[in-house]
């Protein structure tokens, strides 16, 4: 479900499982990590096909297969770290919805484009999962106060509100305008002197040092995996229509 393309100097990675709102399976996550690591273009756009960018992990798979959730959590951490480690900037085209694991991918973005009506958030405590894996990256993106609220409160926010919080940086009026704007921004970033951009990205990564907390975040999320609470709440979530 991971599609790779090149558009000029811009690499484009698309999540493509539109009938499942691009819900991530362990296999897709592993492919995403590989695709990101192999990116050599001046900049990268991460986008999704169909009605939404990404609805998060494939929960049905997680309920059926005890190995899926840990693989997805580890893969998510690796994906965000891989995005941040690229020399070129990353633009995420978050149209329609970016939820749970889908919203967590925003932690690897330099610029996030979304539509005003987009729904974003981490409603995962409701299914017994901790979004701790994303915490080190989210607090850098939006600051400690909003990160705290965003991860503990299972509600979703609109694109407008996400822009106010700093989770989204460019708003467009409708979902179909997200990808063109993201590609435009990525092309402008790819046209900048690559050595200067790479050095600046590396320095920002060094001084922010969100990676230092990545292991602890992952461990906190992993500590709940396949526990009684998670199995019960996950099963209930999958049964809900």
């Amino acid at each position: 479900m991971i599609v790779r393309e090149h558009r000029g100097g811009v690499a484009l990675i698309r999540l493509s499982r539109p009938d499942q709102r691009n819900a991530l399976t362990p296999g897709a996550m592993a492919d995403l990590v590989r695709a990101v690591r192999e990116t050599t273009a001046g900049s990268l756009v991460l986008a999704g096909d169909g009605p939404v960018f990404c609805a998060g992990f494939d929960l049905k798979r997680c309920a059926e297969d005890a190995g899926a959730m840990p693989a997805l959590l580890r893969g998510l951490s690796e994906a965000v770290i891989a995005l941040r480690a690229l020399p070129g900037p990353v633009v995420v085209a978050a149209h329609g919805a970016a939820i749970a694991g889908g919203c967590a991918l925003l932690g690897g973005a330099d610029v996030v484009v979304a539509d005003r009506g987009c729904r974003l958030g981490y409603p995962v405590v409701r299914i017994g999962v901790s979004p701790a894996v994303s915490a080190p990256f989210l607090r850098g993106a939006v600051g400690d106060g909003p990160a705290r609220a965003g991860m503990l409160d299972p509600g979703l926010v609109s694109g407008d509100e996400a822009a106010r919080l700093g989770l989204v940086h460019e708003l467009v009026e409708s979902p179909d305008l997200v990808m063109p704007r993201a590609l435009e921004l990525a092309a402008a970033l790819a046209a900048k002197p690559p050595w200067a951009v790479a050095a600046t990205r590396a320095w920002l990564r060094e001084i922010e040092d969100a990676e230092a907390g990545a292991e602890r975040g992952l461990a906190a999320s992993m500590s709940l995996v396949n526990g009684e609470e998670e199995r019960r709440l996950l099963a209930a979530a999958v049964r809900r229509p």
Binding site: D110, A141, V142, G143, H169, L189, V197, T200, L204, E208
Partner: peptide, 19 residues
């Protein structure tokens, strides 16, 4: 960069400096 990160946060600083 470190001063801008302290003033406006890492996320905003990242965008301002890279763009």
């Amino acid at each position: 960069a470190p001063w801008l990160v302290r003033k406006i946060g890492a996320g905003r600083a990242r965008r301002v400096l890279l763009c």
